[in-house]
Write a protein that binds this DNA or RNA. Structure first.
Lengths: 146, 146
DNA sequence: GATGAAAAGCCCTTAAC
DNA sequence: GTTAAGGGCTTTTCATC
């Protein structure tokens, strides 16, 4: 596949900052015609560099104000795929990171309140292969589009 | 402010799944007129439930295959705002989580390679207030829309 | 306070080059 | 990569419940 050029990179940056910018608008920024921009963006999606477009929702404001990380230790027979399965099985798990080092995985959690967190951690600890956890509370966080 | 109803929640779910869906399209899904949908979405943005719209870019495929976390310890005089400033100052920092507990903050990092990671961690360690770090390498991760 | 209808203008998309 | 054109979408205004 053709490598990305500077125009593609500019388009990525612009669409990362505002995923709803119009092709007409983007065309002006990169000094290209509208159809040319559309073809480039379509291609970026097709090759998977752009996974998709999404609304960034503030879950804290919506329904899950509490955020935490849970470091997990698994027994030696557990595969990375089994660890990643936590994301599929528990809706409170936003992400699972399989680690090299001390702990085997890191779970990013979002919950309604402490009782909910207690319940989720209990479910994690009851998961096959999990032999230990260490939970870290998040007091505040920053991310999303710059 | 008016609390969110089921239509708002439906719109959020739809826009999370596809941030570029048209208002006309959304209107069909929630059985409302186009202007009504636009007003609701504008309101969700205005009140901050929708932080913004973005293209989800696969940085691993693009230019930063390596992912890591860096746990940070700060001296007692450092404010949470100062910790969060790392996200603004270092482009390799995807997110900063201010923690309650052992470490003071957790940085999510994305880098090109090990040399790049070494450089970023060095910059973190050279940051005012940082007195200790512990870096965790990510071997694989799962997240994004289910 | 929120909605629907209508209209003008802009945007998207396709086709042709 | 460009231009051109049709159709669709967005956005504003205004009347309504």
């Amino acid at each position: 596949m053709t490598p990305l050029d500077d125009v593609d990179r500019k388009l990525l940056a612009l669409l990362e900052a505002d995923g709803r910018r119009t092709f007409a608008d983007l065309a002006g920024e990169v000094a290209l015609s509208q159809p040319a921009v559309k073809r480039r963006v379509d291609r970026l999606v097709a090759v998977g560099v752009i996974i998709g477009f999404t609304a960034v929702v503030d879950r804290a404001r919506l329904d899950r104000p509490l955020e935490a990380f849970c470091e997990l230790r698994f027994q030696g027979t557990t595969s990375p795929e089994d660890m990643e399965a936590l994301r599929r099985d528990l809706p409170e798990v936003e992400a699972v990171y399989v680690l090299a080092g001390d702990f085997d995985a890191l779970c990013h959690l979002r919950v309604r309140d402490m009782a909910h967190l207690r319940e989720v951690v209990a479910r994690l600890r009851a998961t096959t292969g999990v032999v230990g956890t260490k939970t870290l509370m998040v007091m505040s966080s920053v991310r999303g589009p710059r």
